[in-house]
Simulated assay, not measured.
Amino acid sequence: MDIRVINSLTYEDFVNIFGNVVEKCPLISAAIWSHRPFKDLEDVETHITEFIHSLSDSGKEGILRCHPDLAGRDLQTGALTRESQEEQSQAGMTTLDSREILDMYRLNAEYKERFGFPFIICVRLNKKAEILRQLSERLKNDRAAERERAIEEVKKICSLRLHSIVLSDMQTKL
């Protein structure tokens, strides 16, 4: 999918295709659609990033709360979005042993109790050992620092998802 195709999408198609680049936040794609024509995919990403940064702290935390716990109930029950399912699977969250599952549940609960939102890390760029280490380490942050760190991870996830959409569409046409 090239930028001409992206720019020609109807509002509904744009939101349908890009509505989950930020987990369960189609409002972001809806909000940036009016900025067309985009110069390139990076321009799309820039508008998403600017939208996120324009939000209040509570708005940013709202975005974070849309994310599932890693290796949590949604994974166990099959309730994850397709993107999250693929990402958690690739990172090894579906192959945790019983000890690792208990550690994840405990650390996720501590994290949510401390910060009020789930632990966010770009799992595509990490494996389970590093995810567990980061989860333990980031529990030491203060709320403001952790909110900003989590938003940076959301932006990484968004970037990878945007590029995956475009790449998968290009591969389909080959």
Rank of each mutant, 00 (worst) to 15 (best):
M93W: 05
L132K: 06
R143C: 12
E146G: 04
K156F: 04
L102H: 13
L162V: 06
R124V: 03
E146M: 07
P118M: 09
F119P: 00
S159W: 03
L160N: 09
N141I: 06
R99W: 01
L75S: 04
L96T: 09
N108D: 07
E148N: 15
D103K: 08
V166Y: 01
A109M: 11
Q76L: 11
R114A: 10
P118H: 11
A144P: 06
I131P: 00
N126E: 10
S84G: 14
A79I: 00
V166G: 05
Q171F: 08
A129N: 12
R82W: 07
S84C: 13
I165P: 02
L132N: 03
L75W: 02
I120K: 00
K155C: 06
S98I: 09
E153P: 07
Y105K: 15
M170R: 15
A144N: 13
E87G: 02
I101C: 11
R99Y: 03
Q90R: 13
D103A: 12
R99A: 08
Q171K: 15
E148A: 08
M104Y: 02
N141H: 15
R149S: 14
V123A: 01
L162I: 09
E148Q: 15
E83A: 15
A91R: 02
H163K: 11
M170I: 12
L132F: 04
E152W: 10
I120M: 03
L102Q: 13
